[in-house]
Design a protein around this nucleic acid. Sequence first.
DNA 1: TCTGGGGTCCTACCTCGG
DNA 2: TCTGCCGAGGTAGGACCC
Length: 442
Amino acid sequence: MDAFYASAEQAAKPSLRGKAVVVGGLGPRGVVATASYEARKFGVHSAMPMGQARRLAPNAAYLVPRFRLYREISEQVMGLLRELSPLVEPLSLDEAFVDLEAGETAWDARSAEAVGLRLRADIRRVTGLSGSVGLAVSKMLAKIASEEAKPDGLLLIPQGTERGLLGPKSVRILPGVGPATGDHLRRAGINTVAEIAEAGEDELVRLLGKAHGSHLYAMALARDERPVVAERDSKSVSVEDTYDVDIHDRVRVRTEVQRLADRCVERLRAAERSGRTVVLKVRRYDFSTLTRSETLRGPTDDPAVVREAAARLLEGVDTTGGVRLLGVGVSGLADFTQEDLFAQAAAAASEEAAAEAVEAEETGAPAEEVAEEPVERRWMAGHDVRHAEFGPGWVQGSGLGRVTVRFETPLSERPGRVRTFSVDDPLLEPADPLPLVEGLAR
DNA sequence: TCTGGGGTCCTACCTCGG
DNA sequence: TCTGCCGAGGTAGGACCC
C-alpha cells in the first residue's frame, strides 16, 4: 500500500485529499510513522522527529495513528491476496508476498501482469486506496520492484534482466542494507550492487560477517531462494513507552516497569501464548539503551511472575540521570505454561489475574487508565467523533479546554465545516471509523 | 534535529557439561 | 586429575524493517 496510514486518513477525511498529511506520535518525542506524498515533497519522511517535520511542513495536517482502522483495511487487502494463492506472507499491515505459482493464478510474465493489474483494481474498489505491485521470480526482486513501482504502479522484472537492472543501483536498494551496513560498504569502496558482486563473497564475509556477507553477496547476484511462508509464529511479545519527560524517581521507574509487565502479559494472553525469557529494556537520558534478560525454568503467562522478573532485572540497572524509555518483553514463546505442567496450585491467583486482564480489555482502555479516575476527556487529532446535533466528524485539534471538529465523512463530496467545542461538551462522543467505500460494510 | 513501537535476525562472549 | 575442545544455551547489543 502506498503511504498507507496517510492515504487511509486522506480517504477518511475529504478535506485532507491532495494535502500534506503526517501520521505519527504528536508528543514532544514523537516521530513520523508515514507522510503523504504531498508531505514528502517538503522533505518529511518516516522516522523523522516530529519537531523537524513541523519545521519543514508547518501547514501539514498532523494526526495520530488509528491502528484499528488500518488493521481493518489490511484484513480486506489480505483477503484479496488469499483469493490469489494460499501462500500469502504478510510482512506488515501494508505489505505481503504472494506466491502466484502456488495459487495457479499465474505461470508466466503475461499472466502475472494480468493478475497484478486486476489486484490493483480490486484493492481500489474494496478499500478506496491505491496499492503498488512488484512482480518477479523471487521475494527480494518482487520487493524491489514494488518499491520502484510506488506510488500507484506495477512493475515486472523480466527473468534474465535482474542483474542488469540491479547492477548500477545503490547498495541501499537491497533489503537488509541500512545506514550502518551502507556506510560500512562505502568505506570499503563499495557503492553499487555490481560492486558487491565484483568484490566477491570472501570479501563480503570479511566485511560483514558470515551470515550477512553471504546473504548480501547472493542478493547482489539476484539469487534468492527463500520460499513464501504463509504461517509464521511470532517469537516475542513486547511493550515499551517513551516518556515525554525523563523519569528520575526510582519509585516511579519501578511502577512503570510493573505496568509494562502487566500490559505485556495481557498481549501475551490475548495471543494465547506463554514465554520463558523476560526482557527489560531501558533507554537512558543520553539515549544509551541497555537490555537485561532472565530465563525462567519454564514458560509462563502469569503477570505476577513476569512482574517479579522484570523488577529483579531493574535492580541491576542504574537509572540515576533519568530514563526516557522503558520496555518489558517476553521471548522463548510456547503454547503452554510451566504452571500447566504442575498441579493447580497457583490456579486461584492466575484466575484472579485473568479476570483483571479481561476487565481491562472490556473497558477498552490501557491498564494505566483503568486504575485512575478519569480527569479530562482527551481528543486525539484525527480520531472520529459524533456530535448529537452536527453528526459525524473528526478531531482537527484540541488544547486549552477546546476541541476543534471538522464535520465530514469519507463519502462527503466537499470538505466539511469546522466547529469548536468545550472538551467536556456532553453532545460530543468518540465514534468508530466509518467505511471508506460506499456499500461495503466492514 | 534529537531521535517511536513492535518486531526479527545476527554476532560476540560467557558458562557449563560431556 | 587436569586440560582442551566443542556444542548448547543464556545474555547483551546492534542492525534492520515497516
